[in-house]
Design a protein around this nucleic acid. Sequence first.
DNA 1: GCATAAATAGACAGACCTGTCTCACCACTT
DNA 2: AAGTGGTGAGACAGGTCTGTCTATTTATGC
Lengths: 193, 193
Amino acid sequence: MTEPTKIDKRQHIVETAYELFKRAGFHATGIDRIIAEAGVAKMTMYRHFPSKDDLMVEVLTYRAGRFERQLDRLAEQAATPERKIGLIFDRYGRWFNSADFHGCLFAHALAEFGDPAHPVFQAAARQKNGLKRRMRLILEEMIPADEADSVSAALLMLIEGATLTARMGQPDPAIRDARKAAMAILAARRRSQ
Amino acid sequence: MTEPTKIDKRQHIVETAYELFKRAGFHATGIDRIIAEAGVAKMTMYRHFPSKDDLMVEVLTYRAGRFERQLDRLAEQAATPERKIGLIFDRYGRWFNSADFHGCLFAHALAEFGDPAHPVFQAAARQKNGLKRRMRLILEEMIPADEADSVSAALLMLIEGATLTARMGQPDPAIRDARKAAMAILAARRRSQ
DNA sequence: GCATAAATAGACAGACCTGTCTCACCACTT
DNA sequence: AAGTGGTGAGACAGGTCTGTCTATTTATGC
């Protein structure tokens, strides 16, 4: 076994913190827990991240990056805007049913850090805006830009609401109803073209 | 000025805790802060509520009751299901623009307490189910029961997503886009009747 | 007026929190 | 071989958390 390099160790801390934040929340997860789980010394963590805030922002930014890359890959796998949006909803449906589904980390960050000026709030908001932006770009191939903005906002709402509903224990009806509603909204716009 | 009675004092604690939980979150609000703000002794609080968990459940239950009474009053002020749903969305729009809008306390509770077995989680989930149930009953005057269930789920998702979007700083587009999407969903069902 | 109950202020325990610091160790480079 | 920088283990400070307890005062009912 090769020794982990500096970058590996930093990344290992980020991924360990991610798992803990996801399961227990941000406030409820202490530094001591993170370093114990990651198997690193406290000073190692504080060398890479000056404060817990910085670590939380890094975790959110890292996961947002992964998420957006997956989203972009998904959009390439379908031809029409409807199908692309459909694939996004399908992906959410599989996530809702996955073994370690614990709700949306970004939504939880927004809930726990209510101050819009807080860096954690802003990092979480960036992910939501990135998702909306990607859906808007998909929709602009289909409807005018201003309508695409409005529809992408509605689709984001359905996704966020579905995630919350799935969290409350009904993952299958959640994604089914959200998908049905999304397709109804798209059909209405298509018809009014 | 009359002195507050026993019930008044208990209720005063609940309402003070509500304000603090709403602004700063559940974990971030300590008992000491609550009793200082309420102007009561610590033992007074612990006499009424054996633990912080009990107080949080009481706050959520109290607010859910108020919310549902307002919802029921709202439903009486319109004749058709569409108008009733419209009034609910209007009410959310006014809330988004109110001075002390800090997002949905129940959604925040679900985010902070991820364990579905936790009493706080369950108390918050009850409010969401209550809202969905009321919308479903309204819709059952218009479409079959199974469709009403699906549509009310979608409307709940739009409301939750709109609340999150409003929280991120766009209250007016949030309620406008949510309302537009809701009406499109209702129109599609009406048409397929 | 007197007894009972409730409320007050505050100390206190024990645990946890973030963040700093020390010191020893180990791997690698020059 | 000596130095350098990252790391581990853990003590530590200073603060906060929930929840308990005591001692005193206030309010209420009979």
